[in-house]
Nucleic acid binder design. Structure first.
Lengths: 222, 222
DNA sequence: CCTCGTGTTATCCAAATCGTTTAACAGTCT
DNA sequence: AGACTGTTAAACGATTTGGATAACACGAGG
């Protein structure tokens, strides 16, 4: 069944396999919907082995979330290295963000799930991360944008809301994926193309919306 | 406890109370995390009564989701009546959307939850709604925007993505509420003010981003 | 007044799950 | 050979939950 290597007694990354399996199942079924048996099956091991590595389901979940969250944030931050100009920075952020989420949908779903009906696990973790001065994905771009405002490269605007809008535009489609599929009436295999369009669209809209042409006032349009 | 009326044998809106309680609990704890006992307590009735009205937890959930979803969509559509100009239409949409979601957070959470780890219940319902030519909240604005493009009031742009961006910007903050709270570092009671700012911000950014000044090309900015 | 039906409760049952433990087994390392 | 680790199968007790049943309350109608 397993690889051809002897792979019996020697520690064959079992813990990691459990980790991955747990992440997948937790992400798909939710914290409560997930069954230990399913995780064990998914990892190709006996259910008792789950308790051998992680004492309880609770501890398994916490471990997966804690470690996964840290790794997720770090990886995301790293994939969002700053560029030279504001425009390139924004583009790099949007492209990097969506690409990264695409590659880590399970973790993203897990975190969003925690947002929706979690018991504050995410909040605690985020608060700790901020307290520990860890790199928080959006802040780098926010700094960049702030500098751009100072330089008159983009117009004055509430950056917190702007950043939230950017993240929303990038992330929400993954949440509402089933709904999006319906309205774009495309098969699953077109999802890649959809994301390509999406990235370009967001950057386009944002750049236009941030141009330093002075704020629009009611009635000025049309 | 209930109203002063005799209120024993006559159907005292018990079904509705169950409905509301179920919605609340399902939204907060998720489909699997919700306990029938908790729903019963929340409704102030005996647990067996749940089975009297709705046979199983599954059927209760389906009923709540089905009915709630239909009512939610209809109400949302109705609160998004079209205005005269494009600008007013967009503003009305954003303000109406956020206000409506604010008033129906439970149902919104339920639907988003279903998006994240549901078994296709939402998809089936949406597909049926579209099939039945029911009013789908975003389409009205999309028509309006399309007309505006034709009239040269806004620039040419992919409307599907634009609409998705608008909805994302309105809806996502509710999903990521715990996270948003952290970054805006405000108490709960400021949530109202936050939403006010948010509405204004979205409209502002969108109007600027849609102005018919021709698309921005790489390097044109700054 | 006496049934009858419905809303409601208290109580109980069966099944699913979980966490935990135990016994056994296969290799590895000394 | 013996100790140790990773692993499995099996079982147990506890808890919880979903679901069924019987009895109760009370208004309606003959």
């Amino acid at each position: 069944m397993a690889s051809q290597a002897p792979a019996v007694t020697r520690p064959p990354d079992t813990e990691q396999r459990i980790f991955d399996a747990a992440l997948t199942v937790f992400a798909r079924k939710g914290r409560d919907g997930a069954r230990l048996q399913e995780i064990a099956d998914h990892a190709g091991i006996n259910r008792a082995l789950l308790h051998y590595y992680f004492r309880t389901k609770e501890q398994l979940y916490e471990a997966v979330f804690e470690h996964g969250c840290r790794q997720f944030m770090a990886g995301l931050s790293q994939s969002l290295r700053a560029e030279e100009g504001v425009e390139d920075s924004l583009r790099a952020f949007v492209y990097g963000y969506i690409d990264y989420i695409y590659e880590h949908q399970d973790m993203a779903r897990l975190m969003l799930n925690e947002c929706l009906c979690g018991g504050g696990v995410l909040e605690r973790h985020l608060a700790a991360a901020i307290e520990a001065r860890e790199e928080v994905p959006g802040l780098l771009l926010e700094d960049r944008l702030r500098a751009a405002i100072g330089a008159g490269e983009i117009r004055e605007i509430d950056l917190r809301h702007t950043l939230l809008t950017i993240v929303s535009a990038c992330l929400f489609p993954f949440v509402a994926l089933p709904t999006v599929r319906l309205f774009h009436s495309r098969a699953v295999e077109d999802f890649d193309r959809f994301l390509q369009e999406r990235k370009a669209h967001i950057v386009d809209l944002l750049l236009a919306g941030l141009r330093p042409t002075g704020g629009i006032r009611r009635g000025e349009l049309a």
